[in-house]
């Protein structure tokens, strides 16, 4: 079987009827499955850090996988990672925006309770609010819990830059693609995030 840089290219230029295109499809499936398998757990944790709710995080990751598969899988596989995170970050932002609108609407209603998603709450409240995640938090320990609280307190762009660069290992150019901004902005956001986290966490750790 001839080798191609990407299986997508192989599919596009396929001319030889033997072996059957089904073989290319199978190899393409394996490549996409491998990519998503490598990335899915980190993506889920990043979404969970941003959204706090594991179900919301799972929904966003599922949507991201489907959108990548349906809309961008024809792109070279080397582009999948930044595209995946771009879709993921957009999904997280959309969900946060919907929560914000819902919270604003709820405050108008008489007798409305305080929204548990309030970002400015005491860190101890986070433990009580995210009941399904308690075993996970206990397992990760106090340090990870403190890190999550500090990451959530960062401005969105700084948090994105820090997690994509530091947790996912994207380079500056890939991070810029994922965030939809310039490489200079990525450097600025990342630097500010590190500075803020250092101030908040060095004394605690």
């Amino acid at each position: 079987m001839p080798r191609f840089d990407t299986l997508n290219a192989a599919w596009m230029v396929w001319e030889d009827p033997a072996p059957a295109p089904e073989g290319v499809i199978l190899e393409y499936r394996r490549e996409l499955d491998k990519f998503l398998g490598e990335i899915e757990r980190r993506a889920f944790r990043m979404a969970q850090v941003a959204l706090r709710d594991p179900d919301d995080a799972m929904d966003v990751v599922q949507d991201t996988m489907l959108k990548l598969a349906r809309s961008y899988s024809a792109r070279p596989s080397s582009e999948w990672r930044p595209l995946f995170y771009r879709i993921l970050e957009n999904g997280i932002r959309d969900l946060q925006r919907r929560r914000s609108v819902r919270k604003r609407f709820m405050t108008w209603l008489p007798g409305a309770k305080e929204d548990p998603d309030n970002e400015a709450q005491d860190p101890l409240d986070n433990v009580a609010d995210s009941a399904p995640a308690i075993p996970e938090i206990l397992m990760q320990g106090q340090a990870m819990q403190q890190l999550e609280v500090s990451l959530r307190a960062l401005p969105t762009r700084q948090r994105e830059a820090f997690m994509l660069r530091n947790f996912e290992g994207l380079d500056v150019a890939e991070t810029a693609t994922a965030m939809g901004c310039s490489e200079g902005s990525v450097k600025t956001h990342y630097s500010r995030a590190v500075h803020t986290l250092r101030e908040q966490l060095v004394g605690v750790w």
């Binding site: 899915e40 799972m58 990548l68 996970e136």
Partner: peptide, 22 residues
């Protein structure tokens, strides 16, 4: 440290995405 249930759900989501793409 992600638990088995979450990993299973992620695997299901991945399989659905791969199926949609292929």
């Amino acid at each position: 440290g992600l638990d088995f249930a979450l990993r299973s759900r992620l695997t299901q989501a991945r399989n659905a995405a791969v199926e949609a793409a292929s």
